[in-house]
């Protein structure tokens, strides 16, 4: 993984978050939640700063980050696509929907497209089983998704973006 040089501002931001939790080591998960909320992901360099602030080993931070599926060390796409793989969604065809997203975007689960627009992830149940199969893009929820709708969903985001670009041009 290429090394990332954190800016002074970012380092200060992380330090402030740690200070808010009184630099207590048992607040590690809360700290990680807040930092990921601000930065989008938790690369190794960020983990080093947190470890130093909370006075614990980097291995401990890394251990926690990699244990929980909510934390990621890879930047997400501009529009993160999440396919629910809960049981209700699975029996209603989520696997086919996922396969179609992978095929259309030509990326695997956990990866981002080259232009950084989309990334695909699997979720374990968003608790909206009545709408199965469920796909979320950013904060928007798509229910009862069929593989044939996948193209439209992707288009919704690529088009709205090119429209924005056209406007700003």
């Amino acid at each position: 993984m290429p090394e990332i040089k954190l800016s002074e501002n970012t380092i200060q931001l992380i330090k402030n978050i740690c200070a808010e939790f009184e630099n207590k080591e048992n607040e590690l998960i809360n700290v990680l939640h807040r930092v990921q909320g601000k930065l989008g992901y938790l690369p190794a360099e960020v983990q080093e700063v947190i470890a130093k602030e909370l006075n614990i080993g980097v291995a401990r931070v890394y251990g926690v980050v990699t244990f929980y599926s909510f934390f990621t060390m890879i930047p997400q796409g501009e529009f993160p696509i999440s396919i629910c793989m809960g049981t209700a969604c699975y029996v209603r065809g989520a696997e086919q929907v996922l396969a179609e997203f992978k095929r259309q975007l030509n990326v695997d689960v956990g990866e981002s497209t080259n232009d950084g627009k989309f990334s695909i992830n699997c979720l374990r149940c968003v608790g909206a089983c009545g709408l199965a199969p469920v796909v979320t893009v950013g904060g928007k929820v798509f229910g009862r998704v069929a593989p044939s709708q996948v193209k439209e969903i992707i288009a919704e985001y690529t088009q709205s973006n090119s429209a924005d670009e056209a406007k700003s041009a």
Binding site: T87, R124, C125, G127
Partner: peptide, 11 residues
Amino acid sequence: DEGDPGAFMDR
């Protein structure tokens, strides 16, 4: 921590 896929009682 309702982690069961397909369950949303607690939520």
